[in-house]
Design a protein around this nucleic acid. Structure first.
Lengths: 228, 228
DNA sequence: GTGCAGGCTTGATAATTATCAAGTCACAAG
DNA sequence: CTTGTGACTTGATAATTATCAAGCCTGCAC
């Protein structure tokens, strides 16, 4: 792995505050891998041999059961995945696939556990990251159970609005069928939901979504800091 | 707090392997509190001043938004709650209420963070517990998104069957309206779902649920170790 | 023992969402 | 430039679930 790569990894919050020796241990056995789009990185049920970190690109966590498939979440730059499975040395509960060309850092789970036990700063970073992931999942579940599909889409648009610099025209970061799956609906229903949000000033053109009246959309969506 | 109580707390897995001094620090400022049924212990949005552990009884974690309310999970003996909020010193994402008379241990969050930084065994116990909670939530979300309401109920019955000693007559641990909320449906629908499961040998009489043909129910429910 | 309240069941109807089919559009491959 | 494929949209219909109402049952309080 190049010196430049190692310095990039050092800047990830998970590693920013840990000791040099700990960092060396973690990166010594690590992989930095580029994957094409639509590649399955891990499969649910498999053992968690590596902790994964998305360096660039886009990765979807999904699950299947009895022929049904659903998107659990979508990960972007500097997101970890299967951290809980790594810590517990348990099988993955989710699969992962790249949605676009992605670079992924893979750290051997044994090294992660070894350093966790010896470096308090790393232990703290791990538990903070795990807490963040867990809380994100609670918010997601609240979104699914407390809101209608229209409300979920409206709040998703508002969230992208903020993430993309408070601009009134956002670009959907993933395909609509993946977004539909994430929001818990079929692609046909997502299409109809976008149409219905026309009543709240939302217009769609391919991957571009335009908000005509941000206050109207806010009034309908009722965003909540404990969910969004 | 009595010596007997302190010994009971010592036996909780979270504390079983930690140093004596760490344990003393944690229990010194701790509370051991009995609450009547239907009492709200914490409220979403509030700061997480204590880590809570259910010593006995039953506690429901729930959330509300725009007049809607949903049950996120139900906790029994030796379950922790708001661990992630405690670690991150962030507001609670969920509220909690007792469903029956309950005894709860409350540890000051500052003490938890203080000991976490100094006792590797406690750090490991915390992160293992957090991983367990997080993975439970992922299973819950998979259950909600991948299964119909009938399938969710069927798998719930099978899970209680195993938890109650593989007996063919189980006792629902909570009221049906709370179970309905947890499974993501209205009480009317839960009633109809129980009725529909009659086709798979399930009979209901108040809080008692009887399974006539465990294989038939298994064939319908298709339990999965990655969900249930 | 009686009355009341809360939980639950059942019926009817409305609303939401899924499914299936067909057509359109854009992009990639040849 | 042409063709084919996959994503998406739209229409029609089926299925699922929510809502509302009414009645029953059980347990608790007086």
């Amino acid at each position: 792995m190049s010196i430049q790569r190692i310095e990039e990894i050092r800047n990830i919050p998970l590693f920013a505050d840990i000791g040099d020796e700990s960092f060396a241990t973690l990166t010594r056995g690590a992989y930095f891998q580029a994957f094409p789009a639509n590649m399955e990185l891990i499969t649910e049920g498999e053992s968690a041999d590596f902790l994964h970190i998305v360096h660039s690109g886009c990765v979807e966590l999904f699950s299947t059961w009895a022929g049904n498939e659903t998107t659990i979440t979508t990960l972007y730059e500097n997101s970890t995945f299967i951290l809980a499975a790594t810590i517990k040395d348990a099988p993955n509960l989710m699969s992962a696939r790249t949605l676009s060309k992605s670079e992924v850092i893979m750290l051997p789970s044994e090294d992660v556990r070894w350093v966790f036990e010896r470096d308090p700063a790393f232990a703290m970073a791990i538990v903070v990251e795990l807490s963040r992931c867990y809380r994100a999942t609670i918010r997601n579940m609240k979104n699914l159970k407390l809101r209608s599909s229209l409300e979920r889409l409206a709040n998703y648009i508002l969230k992208q609005h903020h993430r993309q610099g408070d601009t009134l025209t956002i670009t959907l970061p993933i395909e609509k069928r993946r977004l539909a799956s994430y929001l818990g609906m079929t692609p046909e229903n997502l299409s109809r939901a976008f149409k219905s949000l026309g009543a709240h000033s939302v217009r769609v053109d391919g991957q571009k979504v335009t908000i005509g009246d941000i206050d109207a959309l806010n009034r309908f969506a009722k965003p909540d800091v404990l969910i969004d």
